[in-house]
Protein backbone atom coordinates (compact mmCIF):
# COMPACT_ATOMS: atom_id res chain seq x y z
CA UNK A 1 0.00 0.00 0.00
CA UNK A 2 1.47 3.39 -0.93
CA UNK A 3 2.13 5.85 1.89
CA UNK A 4 -0.65 8.35 2.66
CA UNK A 5 0.56 11.87 1.98
CA UNK A 6 -0.29 14.28 4.80
CA UNK A 7 0.59 17.91 5.37
CA UNK A 8 1.07 19.80 8.64
CA UNK A 9 -0.46 21.48 10.59
CA UNK A 10 -2.89 18.59 11.13
CA UNK A 11 -6.65 19.05 11.38
CA UNK A 12 -9.01 16.77 13.34
CA UNK A 13 -10.33 15.57 10.01
CA UNK A 14 -6.89 14.40 8.85
CA UNK A 15 -6.19 12.76 12.22
CA UNK A 16 -9.52 10.90 12.09
CA UNK A 17 -8.54 9.52 8.69
CA UNK A 18 -5.41 7.84 10.07
CA UNK A 19 -5.40 4.29 11.44
CA UNK A 20 -2.74 2.32 13.29
CA UNK A 21 -0.57 0.61 10.68
CA UNK A 22 -0.99 3.31 8.00
CA UNK A 23 2.25 4.32 6.36
CA UNK A 24 2.47 8.09 5.89
CA UNK A 25 4.68 10.61 4.11
CA UNK A 26 4.64 13.85 6.11
CA UNK A 27 5.33 17.24 4.53
CA UNK A 28 5.34 20.71 6.05
CA UNK A 29 6.64 22.02 9.36
CA UNK A 30 7.35 19.81 12.38
CA UNK A 31 8.92 21.03 15.63
CA UNK A 32 12.01 19.34 17.02
CA UNK A 33 11.72 18.99 20.80
CA UNK A 34 12.98 16.44 23.31
CA UNK A 35 13.46 16.12 27.09
CA UNK A 36 14.75 19.54 28.19
CA UNK A 37 12.57 21.47 25.71
CA UNK A 38 9.44 19.64 26.90
CA UNK A 39 10.21 20.50 30.49
CA UNK A 40 10.36 24.19 29.51
CA UNK A 41 7.22 24.11 27.33
CA UNK A 42 5.18 22.62 30.15
CA UNK A 43 6.54 25.21 32.59
CA UNK A 44 5.42 27.98 30.17
CA UNK A 45 1.92 26.52 29.84
CA UNK A 46 1.59 26.16 33.62
CA UNK A 47 2.73 29.78 34.07
CA UNK A 48 0.23 30.93 31.42
CA UNK A 49 2.99 32.35 29.23
CA UNK A 50 3.17 32.26 25.42
CA UNK A 51 4.93 29.34 23.69
CA UNK A 52 7.73 29.70 21.13
CA UNK A 53 5.49 28.19 18.41
CA UNK A 54 1.79 27.73 17.64
CA UNK A 55 0.71 24.47 19.26
CA UNK A 56 -2.71 24.24 17.55
CA UNK A 57 -2.45 21.50 14.92
CA UNK A 58 1.30 21.16 15.46
CA UNK A 59 3.40 18.02 15.10
CA UNK A 60 6.44 17.56 17.35
CA UNK A 61 9.37 15.36 16.43
CA UNK A 62 11.12 13.79 19.43
CA UNK A 63 14.63 14.19 18.12
CA UNK A 64 18.01 15.77 18.94
CA UNK A 65 20.21 15.82 15.84
CA UNK A 66 23.93 15.40 15.48
CA UNK A 67 25.65 18.63 14.33
CA UNK A 68 25.23 19.51 10.66
CA UNK A 69 28.36 19.01 8.59
CA UNK A 70 29.53 21.73 6.17
CA UNK A 71 26.81 22.60 3.66
CA UNK A 72 24.25 20.29 5.29
CA UNK A 73 20.75 21.30 6.49
CA UNK A 74 21.02 19.03 9.54
CA UNK A 75 23.10 16.14 10.85
CA UNK A 76 21.81 12.64 11.52
CA UNK A 77 18.19 13.06 12.61
CA UNK A 78 16.30 9.96 13.72
CA UNK A 79 13.70 9.67 16.50
CA UNK A 80 14.49 9.31 20.19
CA UNK A 81 12.53 7.19 22.71
CA UNK A 82 9.12 8.83 23.12
CA UNK A 83 8.37 7.41 26.56
CA UNK A 84 10.55 10.05 28.20
CA UNK A 85 8.10 12.70 26.99
CA UNK A 86 5.03 10.86 28.33
CA UNK A 87 4.91 12.99 31.45
CA UNK A 88 4.48 16.12 29.30
CA UNK A 89 2.51 14.94 26.26
CA UNK A 90 -1.09 14.99 27.62
CA UNK A 91 -0.85 18.66 28.62
CA UNK A 92 0.50 19.61 25.18
CA UNK A 93 -2.34 17.69 23.50
CA UNK A 94 -4.85 19.50 25.71
CA UNK A 95 -3.40 22.72 24.26
CA UNK A 96 -3.72 21.73 20.61
CA UNK A 97 -0.82 19.38 19.78
CA UNK A 98 -2.09 16.96 17.10
CA UNK A 99 0.85 14.76 16.21
CA UNK A 100 3.99 13.25 17.72
CA UNK A 101 6.80 11.52 15.84
CA UNK A 102 9.15 9.30 17.84
CA UNK A 103 9.81 5.65 18.57
CA UNK A 104 8.82 3.29 21.33
CA UNK A 105 5.98 2.65 23.75
CA UNK A 106 3.56 5.25 25.20
CA UNK A 107 1.75 5.05 28.52
CA UNK A 108 -1.99 4.35 28.78
CA UNK A 109 -2.47 8.00 29.86
CA UNK A 110 -0.87 9.30 26.67
CA UNK A 111 -2.89 6.92 24.50
CA UNK A 112 -6.10 8.00 26.26
CA UNK A 113 -5.20 11.65 25.69
CA UNK A 114 -4.89 10.92 21.95
CA UNK A 115 -8.43 9.51 21.97
CA UNK A 116 -9.78 12.41 24.05
CA UNK A 117 -8.17 15.19 22.02
CA UNK A 118 -8.03 13.57 18.54
CA UNK A 119 -4.28 13.25 18.18
CA UNK A 120 -1.95 10.70 16.60
CA UNK A 121 1.45 9.09 17.32
CA UNK A 122 3.77 8.18 14.47
CA UNK A 123 6.92 6.06 14.64
CA UNK A 124 9.89 6.77 12.41
CA UNK A 125 12.64 4.19 12.11
CA UNK A 126 14.97 4.50 15.09
CA UNK A 127 18.62 4.40 14.11
CA UNK A 128 17.94 5.49 10.53
CA UNK A 129 19.09 9.05 11.20
CA UNK A 130 21.26 9.37 8.09
CA UNK A 131 18.38 8.31 5.83
CA UNK A 132 15.75 10.44 7.61
CA UNK A 133 17.96 13.55 7.51
CA UNK A 134 17.56 13.58 3.72
CA UNK A 135 13.83 14.28 4.15
CA UNK A 136 14.50 17.40 6.24
CA UNK A 137 14.87 20.36 3.89
CA UNK A 138 14.76 23.29 6.34
CA UNK A 139 16.07 23.75 9.87
CA UNK A 140 15.86 26.84 12.05
CA UNK A 141 16.42 26.91 15.82
CA UNK A 142 13.55 28.98 17.27
CA UNK A 143 14.06 28.56 21.02
CA UNK A 144 16.63 27.56 23.64
CA UNK A 145 19.78 27.49 21.46
CA UNK A 146 21.74 27.02 24.69
CA UNK A 147 20.32 23.50 24.90
CA UNK A 148 22.33 22.45 21.84
CA UNK A 149 20.85 19.23 20.42
CA UNK A 150 17.90 19.70 22.80
CA UNK A 151 16.87 23.11 21.40
CA UNK A 152 13.51 23.62 19.70
CA UNK A 153 13.84 23.85 15.93
CA UNK A 154 11.36 24.49 13.18
CA UNK A 155 11.99 21.73 10.65
CA UNK A 156 10.63 21.70 7.12
CA UNK A 157 10.11 18.08 6.04
CA UNK A 158 9.26 16.61 2.66
CA UNK A 159 7.70 13.15 2.40
CA UNK A 160 9.07 12.19 5.78
CA UNK A 161 8.40 8.43 6.19
CA UNK A 162 6.58 7.25 9.31
CA UNK A 163 3.96 4.74 10.40
CA UNK A 164 0.88 5.33 12.58
CA UNK A 165 1.33 3.45 15.87
CA UNK A 166 -1.45 4.97 18.00
CA UNK A 167 -4.51 6.44 16.33
CA UNK A 168 -7.32 8.53 17.81
CA UNK A 169 -9.51 5.41 18.15
CA UNK A 170 -7.26 3.76 20.75
CA UNK A 171 -5.59 1.23 18.43
CA UNK A 172 -1.91 0.36 19.08
CA UNK A 173 0.25 -1.11 16.32
CA UNK A 174 2.97 -2.19 18.77
CA UNK A 175 0.45 -4.41 20.60
CA UNK A 176 -1.29 -5.67 17.47
CA UNK A 177 1.92 -6.35 15.55
CA UNK A 178 3.45 -8.25 18.42
CA UNK A 179 0.33 -10.35 18.96
CA UNK A 180 0.31 -11.28 15.30
CA UNK A 181 3.86 -12.66 15.31
CA UNK A 182 4.22 -14.03 18.85
CA UNK A 183 4.72 -17.82 18.94
CA UNK A 184 4.58 -20.32 21.78
CA UNK A 185 7.96 -21.74 22.83
Amino acid sequence: MPAKKITTPLTDEVVRGLRAGDEVAISGVVYQARDAAHKRLVALIEAGEPLPFELQGAVVYYMGPSPAGPGKVIGSAGPTTSGRMDAYAPLLMAHGLKGMIGKGLRTPEVKQAMVDTTAVYFAATGGAGALLSRRIVGNEVIAYPELGAEAIARLEVKDFPAIVVNDCYGADLYEEGRKKYAREA
Binding site: S66, S76, G127, R134, A149
Partner: peptide, 16 residues
Protein backbone atom coordinates in the same frame (compact mmCIF):
# COMPACT_ATOMS: atom_id res chain seq x y z
CA UNK B 1 20.06 1.93 3.02
CA UNK B 2 20.78 4.05 6.10
CA UNK B 3 24.12 2.27 6.62
CA UNK B 4 24.99 2.82 2.95
CA UNK B 5 24.20 6.57 3.20
CA UNK B 6 26.21 6.97 6.42
CA UNK B 7 29.24 5.24 4.90
CA UNK B 8 29.08 7.20 1.64
CA UNK B 9 28.30 10.64 3.08
CA UNK B 10 30.46 10.30 6.25
CA UNK B 11 27.50 11.17 8.48
CA UNK B 12 26.62 9.29 11.67
CA UNK B 13 24.22 6.40 11.04
CA UNK B 14 22.26 7.50 14.13
CA UNK B 15 22.04 10.93 15.75
CA UNK B 16 22.71 9.31 19.12
Amino acid sequence: ENADIARADRVPMCQD
